[in-house]
Amino acid sequence: MSRQANRGTESKKMNSELFTLTYGALVTQLCKDYENDEDVNKQLDKMGYNIGVRLIEDFLARSNVGRCHDFRETADVIAKVAFKMYLGITPSVTNWSPAGDEFSLILENNPLVDFVELPDNHSGLIYSNLLCGVLRGALEMVQMAIDVKFVQDTLKGDNVTEIRLKFIKRIEENLPAGEE
């Protein structure tokens, strides 16, 4: 018992510069490995997805967040709990679609891009595209299929960074035969 309690309180915070720089090294490497930006974006999204499907477990175990009842609640949890926990920022949730199936996350400062300047010849690169994959992968593990993309990016001269999330459908649970 005491060991478990101990594990919970252990600080999980670390130097964010290490994360930022490591991510930068990855993007740099991908730009060398692939000929066009489109492929780099795809690869970043794929890697993000792989991270997301694992990160959700860590998140659920540590945050005590239960099942969300609607997409609005999901949006709140993502912005106020998850982003806070993993990146130390709290994006604002805005631009709800009338149907309530689409919203935007506005990031005032994106820790992934701390020391970054995009060279002119990479105009198609979505530098932080990993985040889209992470969100998609994590939500897929809690039965939500969503579409995620960047619609504004400070790296490209926009005033803010905006990630658009669109709810597509609920993934039906396929329980293995013989289980309730």
Partner: peptide, 13 residues
Amino acid sequence: RQEMADEALFQLL
């Protein structure tokens, strides 16, 4: 800011 990233994220990355 320096201390705000989470370890799990770095390890997965």
